[in-house]
Design a protein around this nucleic acid. Structure first.
Length: 414
RNA sequence: GCCUGGGUGGGGUAGCUGGUUAUCCUAUGGGACUGUGGAUCCUACGACUCGGGUUCGAAUCCCGACCCGGGCCCCA
């Protein structure tokens, strides 16, 4: 019986890895230019980290196990919780704001689908220590630019939980959470039923439905009329005006909600075409998690990009690197290896390891798409030179190794 | 966890109203052409996802598992 990879995991071959690294590096470049520093956290954590954040319900979708020391361990299903844990554990007394980015694999026990795997990759950033609209706007702008660098233009939707929450402030906390979940699901019918069930006032009901239905240019003004002059409203307006400064296009959507209480205000999502049911490539918002993990309250904001979904739709193609193949004969193998080693200081160089004959070596060079071939034969060596052959034109010339290196270094990639 | 479509060599396929040795293309290894590539020829390798059942006989029909795709649920 042949062993297969576990369900929902993937192998990446060199061609695909080249694409992934290319996009990854472009995203890294953006993060670095914006002054964010890379961090790395463990692949596994104590399971409480994730149940504290998301509740016991996530256990069914988590890879967990008991280790030999009888600790309950989980493979990380996301990276925000580990980052905040790291902050609480060792960085609370450092200058704010802290700006981090990460790119790593995460694990969730879910049914695989298009754009959904059991091992998947997230590229994310967190900015820790600021509750200001400036931080929120920066994070959103950074997300958009990162996606643009990957060649992706999505639909940006921005909302603010504080506005809907203010409307619900007199309700019991459990009722509020339940309502936020229903809003997030866009389950209007369920929402209506639940509101009836708890005997919500008609006035509030009406306002709630109007709020979450607001979209587009006038959404903010209408929201202000509905809800009045509250702090969340002002901050949201401040945020939107900053998004204008960044030149971003966005849709106001107060229907973006989160059932979980640690979200503090701004939330945003970016959607793309071509992904089927998993059309969200990026999600983020402002949150307060550190108190939950035993630290001081620290406002933060961040996002995570679904890297695999980005790769699914992006057309970015790295330039193919040039490849050189050194070709030799039975009586010049050793000299050829030495020459190949010199070429390797400057260009990607192959040499036969199959004991192939001359003609088959050229044939192999052809099938792997070598741009040039360096022929090391007795005739050439006697003249102190090698033959450099351009595989595209077929032209060939006698050069010293140094001359050949110079020639190859000057060649543009293609 | 639910609904739905599908699994034939490494890749792509024919066969699938049961009946010889499972078809073809491609890729790969070796060889021929004995220091100049994509060709040609020879040769090798290599599959019915797995397990039950029906049958004289199953790639083909039935059931289950596994895997892949699409949609739900979830989306921290």
């Amino acid at each position: 019986m042949e062993i297969q990879k576990p369900r929902g995991t993937r192998d990446f071959l060199p061609q695909e890895m080249a694409r992934r690294r290319y996009v990854e590096n472009r995203m890294r470049g953006v993060a670095e230019r914006w002054g964010y520093g890379e961090i790395k956290t463990p692949t596994f954590e104590h399971i409480e980290l994730f149940t504290l954040k998301s509740g016991e319900a996530i256990l069914s979708e988590i890879y967990n196990f008991r280790d030999k020391g009888d600790r309950e361990i989980a493979l990380r299903p996301e990276l925000t919780a580990p980052v905040v844990r790291m902050y609480v554990e060792e960085l609370q007394r450092t200058a704010k704001p802290l700006k981090f980015y990460y790119f790593d694999n995460c694990f969730r026990y879910e049914r695989p689908q298009k754009g959904r795997f059991r091992e998947f990759f997230q590229f994310g950033v967190e900015i820790i220590g600021s509750a200001k609209a400036e931080a929120e706007a920066e994070v959103i702008a950074l997300a958009v630019e990162m996606l643009e660098m990957a060649g992706i233009r999505g639909d940006l939707h921005v909302g603010h939980l504080g506005i809907v929450r203010a409307l619900l402030k007199d309700l019991q906390p459990e009722h509020r959470s339940k309502i936020m979940r229903l809003v997030d699901k866009k389950d209007d019918k369920g929402l209506e039923e639940f509101l009836d069930e708890i005997n919500a006032q008609d006035e509030m009901k009406g306002k709630l439905f109007r709020l979450i239905g607001l979209h587009g240019d006038n959404a903010v003004h209408e929201a202000r009329e509905l809800i009045g002059d509250i702090e969340a409203m002002s901050q949201f307006e401040a945020l939107l005006s900053l998004l204008d400064v960044y030149g971003l296009e966005y849709t106001v959507d107060l229907g973006i909600a989160r059932g979980l209480d640690y979200y503090t205000g701004m939330v945003f999502e970016i959607y793309c075409e071509g992904l089927g049911a998993q059309n969200q490539v990026c999600g983020g918002g402002s949150y307060g998690l550190s108190a939950l993990f035993g630290g001081e309250d620290t406002p933060s904001t961040g996002y995570a990009i679904g890297f695999d979904r980005v790769m699914e739709i992006c057309e970015a193609k790295p330039e193919a690197s040039k490849r050189i193949v050194v070709i030799s004969f039975e009586d010049t193998r050793k000299e050829a290896i030495a020459i190949a080693n010199k070429l390797r200081e400057h260009v990607s160089t192959y040499i036969d390891v199959m004991g192939r004959k001359f003609k088959d070596q050229i044939s192999y060079a052809n099938t792997i798409g070598a741009s040039h071939v360096v022929i090391v034969g007795k005739n050439e060596l006697d003249a102190g030179k090698v033959a450099l052959k351009d595989m595209r034109t077929g032209e060939q010339e006698l050069l010293t190794v140094e001359e050949a290196v110079g020639r190859l270094k000057g060649i543009k990639r293609y």
